[in-house]
Amino acid sequence: MSQLFDPLPLPKRIFNAALSAIAFSLAALALVPLFAMLWSIFTKGMPHLTGDVFTQLPAPAGMKDIVNGFANAVIGTLLMVAIGSGISLPLGILTAIFLSEFGKKTAFAEVMRFLISILSAAPSIVVGVFAYGVIVLPLKGFSAFAGGFALSIIMLPIVSLATEEALKLVPNSQRLASAALGAGLARTTSRVVLARAFPSILTTALLAIARAAGETAPLIFTALFSQNWLESVMGPSASLSVLIFNYANSPFIEQNNLAWAAAVILVGMVLFTNLLSRFVIRKRLQAW
């Protein structure tokens, strides 16, 4: 009986204890950054998040005690994300339909998938350089449109690949049932396949939008920045992300504070979308 409960030999015990300790402390360390970031953003940003920030223009650098805001940056971000979505959502969803419904396992579709995954791996700054070459150089000017175009290139591979995954999850029996009732390909795909995959496509779109809203690198030399209200889609535009970058590097404390306030909005939006897609929409999908 005593033998059954013999303790492990000492080296084994040390080995186990040491590996446990290392793994747990490293994993604990991994939890620090997210909470540390959220805590600083919240404590440093909330006090400066007044109603003014949504209605006022940024105050000139170095001016104290006057109303300060970034309403133009909110508008700029919304506009450029809208342009990006307007290009990338239709194009990406149609691409996904081709890959999942028509291309399937053919070598041609595999090559396309590989190219799209290459696009998703392109550094966002390179996407910015591309948009600069495509729009800013020929038109000789920074513009909100160039920024929106850059964001669409960022979103395109995300939308295409994730939508394809969503479409592939639709059971083939549903396509066959639709075909058996006399529906053609276009009708089957739009009324049955897309409708069934709609919640996951919506999730994908939201995640891509959240990602685009936080992107900075593709915007700094396409949309540039502006202290004023947006005048035209073909003119430079402020955005929340570039505002954070510029104002974080500013020597003026008011501008630093405004950067933290903008960070609250951006992070709040991004985390909200992520958690929403993770819990709410996924649960609904399972319930189907």
């Binding site: 994993a27 991994a30 939890l31 950054p33 997210l34 909470f35 540390a36 970031m37 600083s40 953003i41 440093k44 966002s124 959240a210 809203a213 936080g214 992107e215 900075t216 690198a217 992300s241 954070i244 970058f245 974080a248 630093n256 950067a259 933290w260 960070a263 951006l266 992070v267 991004v270 985390l271 992520n274 993770r278």
Partner: peptide
Amino acid sequence: PIAVVVELIAAIPSVIVGLWGRFI
């Protein structure tokens, strides 16, 4: 929950990580 907390780091925009890095 641990996996989610680590994966959510990827959702934080790069410029905000930079802001935090610089000031905190």
